Simulated assay, not measured.
Amino acid sequence: MGRKYSFEVNRTSTASPEALFALEADGPRWAEWGRPLIVQARWARRGTGDPDGVGAVREVGLWPVLIREETLEYELGRKHVYTFAGGRPLKDYRAEVLFTPMAGGGTHLRWTGSFTEPVTGSGPVVAATLRNVIRLFSAKLVKAAETGR
């Protein structure tokens, strides 16, 4: 069994937690703000109860490479937790996105992830790659929420 690794990305935004959450948790909207890495985004399955909530599976990427992410926890405007559906491309992957209102307005965004290294010794490189990808996505998310694009 491989070692566990994790990463964390923090950002602040002038946008509200609700505005940021609405963009991040809505699968199809990733194609609006996630370019050039995300060109296609859609729901593969809707959630139980809330269609965007627990059990929902979004597919994001560019065909034929689509990543499937299943929602594990969903607290409207505050928290979105997901994993890779089917355990791919990383074993035991779990990401948590927290949207915390700041006292003077705006939002503190905290995006964390953890996984089991797929091949012994690959953990540090995979963690660094994921951190950089999430840095990119979180910057795009903040910009989209702040500018409305």
Rank of each mutant, 00 (worst) to 15 (best):
I67W: 12
L130P: 02
G148P: 00
K140Q: 08
N132L: 12
L20V: 04
L72Q: 11
A144M: 04
A145D: 02
G2A: 08
T14G: 11
R131N: 10
W30A: 02
M1L: 12
P36T: 06
G49T: 01
S138L: 00
I134T: 05
G113W: 00
R110D: 08
T112R: 04
L62K: 12
T120R: 15
E117C: 03
A19C: 07
F115N: 00
A85M: 09
Y93M: 10
G104W: 03
G55Y: 00
T120H: 15
M1S: 15
V81I: 03
R42Y: 13
V97L: 09
G55A: 07
P124L: 00
F115A: 02
D52L: 11
W30M: 05
Y5V: 06
F84Q: 02
S16W: 12
W30P: 08
H108V: 13
E96V: 13
T71V: 15
R149T: 14
L62S: 14
R88Y: 14
V97P: 01
R11A: 14
V142E: 00
V57K: 04
L66T: 10
V54E: 04
T120P: 12
R149P: 06
F21R: 08
G49R: 03
G77Q: 08
L72C: 13
R135C: 13
R46P: 10
E96P: 03
W43N: 03
V65G: 06
T14R: 10
G61K: 01
G55H: 00
E75K: 14
R68E: 10
W111A: 00
T147F: 06
G123T: 04
A145L: 02
M1A: 15
